[in-house]
Every structure is written in structure tokens, then in C-alpha cells.
Design a protein around this nucleic acid. Structure first.
Lengths: 112, 112
DNA sequence: TTTATATATAACATAAAGCTTATATAACAG
DNA sequence: CTGTTATATAAGCTTTATGTTATATATAAA
């Protein structure tokens, strides 16, 4: 399952799914354990987990009748790579602003 | 407009909106210019821009009848902060894996 | 003032997301 | 084999997203 940016960002847009990830950030956890704290049916949680898996954000093992889930690095990596483009552009803008302010300071001899 | 994680991740989940951001990463651009390359009506683009603005991903000036858009840092910052939690957890997992592999190597006297 | 340009908003159609309950599957326990 | 536990899938409902066309608004230009 190659994560694609649409799926990965969409997966992270849901608060339940972010809460599931936050729980998994602590430790590997089974579906029932993950579901317990939520006021939501087990099928709903299973669906959320499927979305997270397709987004490359979690992995699942098979252990008897249980499916323990843990974090996967792929989704975050994909997102980070894409965000890099925005970060670079933003820092270039910031540098440009710095230059403008510096120029103003020199020209007018006062702190903006 | 304080960006919230739901809105910001959802904003980034759409390929048209990511393309708009990629364009804005290059330079400040007006709505019509942004719309031109897309096989999509101008109102649709205006809507996408509104979503990006509410997500804290862009800012707009008023310049006569034009509304030039540029990147904003807030959305990316919010996302980066949240992703930090996942990154930390993933790197902890990675370290733990390293330990396991190291232990195996010592115990069995062979490279895994 | 009249007309054109840049953008936003409204009304509507369609598709996708997310939830629920009911049911299927598969391993485990007795 | 039979009942139970853990999870997945299906069917159906409701809400939200995204697109379209038509229209409003506001500045600019003639």
C-alpha cells in the first residue's frame, strides 16, 4: 500500500484518527483496546484503522485473533517531504522580509 | 482565523489546493492567474482559496479589484507541531528496534 | 455614466465520509 | 463440535465537500 498524499492528509484530518495515532504513539495496541475510550462502535474504529493503514500511518500484525496496530513511518515521511516545499518557500519569504527591514533600517537610520 | 488541525489537514488533502500552494510557493499570485491553469471554474478556485485561508495556509491582500494571495506560516506551523509527536514516537520505536537487533547480535554472535 | 474586469456568493446537483446495526469470519476455549 | 472473542464487511442513512451556472459587488477604464 503506497501512501498517496490525498489519502494521508485526509486520514489526518479526522480527530478520532489523530487520537488513535496519539494512543499508538505510546504503544502497540489491539483494535478493542483502541476502541474502548471512544463513544463509537467497533466497526467505526475498524474503518478508521483501515483508513490509517491505507494512508501509510499504521501497520498491523496478526496475532491469533487479534490485530495489534503500531505506527508506520511511511505516511509521515511522505507528508514531511511535501511540506518541505512549503517550508522552504516560507523561509525564503521570511529572509526577503528580513532584507526589506534591514534595508529600511539602513536607509532611514531607525529601527522599524 | 485561528487554524485548527481538522481544517488544515483537510485543506491539504485536496490535490487542487496543494497545486495552488505549490504555485504560491513561487510568488504572490492573483485569483485569476491561479485559476488559469486549471480545468475548473473561477468560483471553484475562489472556494479552494477560502478553504486555504481558513486553514491558515494563505493570506490575501486587497489591491484594487485584485486579491493577491501568498503563503502563510500558521497552518504549516500547526501541522508541524502535531506531527512532532508522531516523529518522536517513530524515532523511539526505531531506537528500540536498534536495541533489539544489537541484543540479538550479542546473544547469538551473528549479524541479523 | 457605461462598460469591462476581478472576485465573491447563492442555489443546486452529485459524490464521498462517517456513523449505525446486523452479519460474516476466524481463532480460541471448553 | 459449540460457544465466545476479536475483528471485518455490508447495507443504509445523514452530513459534508466539491463542482456547476447564474448573479452580485466593487474597482477600473472609457
Amino acid at each position: 500500500m503506497t501512501p498517496n498524499l490525498d489519502t494521508t492528509f485526509a486520514a489526518l484530518a479526522d480527530p478520532t484518527r489523530r487520537a488513535l495515532l496519539a494512543r499508538l504513539a505510546r504503544e502497540e495496541t489491539t483494535v478493542m483496546e483502541l476502541a474502548r475510550p471512544f463513544a463509537m462502535s467497533q466497526p467505526a474504529i475498524s474503518r478508521h484503522l483501515k483508513v490509517l493503514e491505507e494512508a501509510g500511518l499504521i501497520l498491523r500484525r496478526i496475532e491469533g485473533t487479534k490485530r495489534p496496530c503500531r505506527l508506520a513511518p511511511d505516511g509521515v515521511a511522505a507528508i514531511d517531504q511535501w511540506l518541505g516545499m512549503l517550508r522552504d518557500a516560507l523561509s525564503r519569504n521570511y529572509e526577503r522580509l528580513d532584507e526589506v527591514l534591514a534595508a529600511m533600517t539602513i536607509e532611514k537610520g531607525k529601527t522599524p
